[in-house]
Design a protein around this nucleic acid. Sequence first.
DNA 1: CCAAATTTGATGTACGTAAATCAAAATCTG
DNA 2: CAGATTTTGATTTACGTACATCAAATTTGG
Lengths: 341, 341
Amino acid sequence: MRPTVHDIAAVAGVSLATVDRVLNQRPGVRHVTREKVERAIRELGYVRDVAAANLAKGRTYPFVFILPASDNSFMHALNAEVRAAVARSPVDRTEIRTIEVPAFDPAALVAVLEKLGEERPAGIALVATDAPDVRDAVDRLVKEGIPVVTVVSDLTGSQRHHYAGVDNIAAGRTAARLLGRFLGGASGDVAVLAGSMLVRDHRERLEGFATVIAKEFPSLSLLPVIEGRDDPELAHMLVADALSKQRGIIGVYSLGAGNRGLIRALKEKAGDRALTVIAHELTTHTRAALLDGTIDAILNQDAGHEVRSAIRVLKAKADGLAVIDGQERIRLDIFLKDNLP
Amino acid sequence: MRPTVHDIAAVAGVSLATVDRVLNQRPGVRHVTREKVERAIRELGYVRDVAAANLAKGRTYPFVFILPASDNSFMHALNAEVRAAVARSPVDRTEIRTIEVPAFDPAALVAVLEKLGEERPAGIALVATDAPDVRDAVDRLVKEGIPVVTVVSDLTGSQRHHYAGVDNIAAGRTAARLLGRFLGGASGDVAVLAGSMLVRDHRERLEGFATVIAKEFPSLSLLPVIEGRDDPELAHMLVADALSKQRGIIGVYSLGAGNRGLIRALKEKAGDRALTVIAHELTTHTRAALLDGTIDAILNQDAGHEVRSAIRVLKAKADGLAVIDGQERIRLDIFLKDNLP
DNA sequence: CCAAATTTGATGTACGTAAATCAAAATCTG
DNA sequence: CAGATTTTGATTTACGTACATCAAATTTGG
């Protein structure tokens, strides 16, 4: 049987009330007494029964998710996963509220964070816009003792407790190697379609991609990045244009959203030549394109995992418990047409 | 606030004791009364507070893991993950016991399962040996109401509640496409190193692999399968021999364990020619080989995920609760040298 | 319709922890 | 050393559920 507060009291030779004071850092305990209790806790290997504690406290975890108001499949999926988590709220004692902020708008994000500082929720998860002001706002919250995790996109140099997202540099590198190997030593141009270079995850993917292409596949040359703003229409136009004008393109890497437009452009120009294409995020559109051969591989991050991981980590931090690292590492999924879920 | 048993009693117009009798299917409740209570439960959307219930019951979950006594890296990793779960036992109220059985020995496995039927643990996880007798033994346990999940290797046609492992046909298909694409249309022979064709996961991987190679990469021809019995020494000998004699080999797929021997053989023959190699399971050896270019891609299943998933599912089944499907799908990890964890 | 059987109600205790109250003891201050 | 202050102990209630007991009410059988 695992030890209880009663056992601690007995071993430490103090009363239950004192043990409680120490455990819940209430005042009115002399230093020596506190040490006696802490020693007993260590000796017995006591770990508080979180379930019983939550029951007694009537505790719930008021969490806040801050999500960008972006109209693309991935953000919709992320939203849906948060809603699914909300549906499970009664069971896991969470009370999740979502706040939408304009995408790529540091000021708006900071304003929301500031207000949350007063509200003091049990934890905050946010899709970070990578700006110094945001970092400072997050660091203030952390200093005030509020658990904060970034989701999908991280915050450079901040003190956030955890990042629930993929390693985007590795993602870019992986895309490069897949593309390079699939092209099997052929020479030609590679087009890169991004959303915006203002977002950290896109920058990082490009960085990883460019590095590996340059170093390991010198027969391939990178064309200037096409910024499609994650907008299907714009992406379609720009890609179609590039494919018409740049006759040397043999590979395409789409590292952002708005793949609907990309796919349309690829199909229109399909007759022309064989293209090898790597894209990010598994959606109905990219899935279909993978199956019909328009896309050769899809790199994906599982939004459900990210949301659940963020919640688990916030909970653990709120309770001062350890997390299982292996469980919280968000992996980069690589999908070929054969291993689709 | 979520509804409690008191609310049900009030709404149904019965006493707390009666609600309790219905909830815990105790006898002594007239049919009409039972229906009144059940209606109230539905109306209120009551869900039993599992934490409080477990507290009251002093409940723990006695689970049993049945693992094969195989001496390879993957099984060691699986063992370690089970031990890690045991270390977390006090926190999540599990009491996990492991039983080792000889590998590939249906009779021994059946004997263990039979005995567990009397013991009636709260759940059983097993690495299944795919034989009719085993299937029957598992089905008996399931019929007796004991939750059973298979881990890593599934059981054909059984009633087990869940399978915590990867789709091995998909894994084989994926390996084929990676190999085919990496070889970029070249012609030649492909060697396959397996452990034993008596294990279902190996059979399935081969099946998926052969199918895709035949259909989509006709310029490649499969050599007869080399059975290395997951033994590094034997694998080394057989592969070295094959590489010497079969000069047309341009690709290798290692779908089982014992990769240490494979890697040694590959390095000895490295000077000869360029080989494209796909292997299963990320270990220190395969990781190093991936990094130094001896292996081109590694397909992996995360043992930690499998163990944790098995436990979550067993718990849910023991409590009669639903599982989150997306969370319990074990994914096939594809590692290139760029996205190693 | 009465006795027997079944069903229901009322009540209390328990699980491990949190939190509060009040009294008693120990320590500190001047 | 008295008095004020701080620290500690003892005890109680609560959280939501499980489970046991005993009495009261209701239904059933003959």
